[in-house]
Amino acid sequence: MPPFTRKNRHILPGFGLSMGYTVFYLSAIVIVPLATIVIGSFNMDQQAFIATVTSPRVLASYRLSISTAIVAALFNAIFGFLSAWTLVRYRFPGRRVLDAMVDLPFALPTAVAGICFATLYSPVGWIGQLLAKADIQLINAPSGIVIALIFIGFPFVVRTIQPVLAELEPEIEESAQSLGATRWQTFRRILLPHLFPALLTGVTLSFARGIGEYGSVIFIAGNLPFKTEIAPLMIMTKLDQFDYDGASAVALVLLLISFSMLLVLNGVQRWQQKSYR
């Protein structure tokens, strides 16, 4: 197959310039810096690398980051779906305000979210003092991390389901109903399967964001080694001790986890596009 023949004749100008600048800027800001960490880890003593990433404290931090991100993503699957449904289907006062506020977690700095939730759920906070009466404490525990991650991941689920739900043709539901399906059957057998790929995309995005999240979590988690120390904090701790090799090792494994999530996401999105065609 001849690569550079007629295909390369563009009508519009600026291909060389725009492509060149894009590749240059992408390399300078993203690719080269990311490559340093990968190349740096090749120069690292292999045994030291493995010892670092399999040490009990580091393993505990991976486990914590992954498990809290999963729980938060599942919670968001339910409440994100619910919110998207109400915002698209029902008309009620304040709907437009709620709709706009879905984006607040994108816009609010994570550190602010962190101190807010830490204060709200502290034993003297607005919600925390109610929970304290029932002897429940959510902060300084994995549940606190989950609270922060729910907030961070919520918009991803709502914003991926909303457009699909809004584009849904009413005929689909009408025909189901005219064939004698109940409202619940229509939802369960027709709507949910149709919305599922979008839901999965949103949940994966929320999960991927949750694994790497730092700012909102550290204020509410308590940051106790083995118990409430998330993986990104582990990197920070190693950096503070000037253990650059250790920090890179922990980071590299976390990067690999995130990139495999990205691959999964790509697969999910391709499936989503196919099923909506």
Binding site: T22, A231, A251, S258
Partner: peptide, 28 residues
């Protein structure tokens, strides 16, 4: 190319900081 453009979203913010500390550190 389009997937590479999205790469920074998949990277934990802490790692985003770390790579520049490493890049500008005395070892490169």
């Amino acid at each position: 190319l389009v997937s590479l453009l999205d790469l920074p979203f998949a990277v934990s913010p802490v790692i985003a900081g770390l790579i520049f500390v490493l890049l500008a550190g005395s070892r490169t």
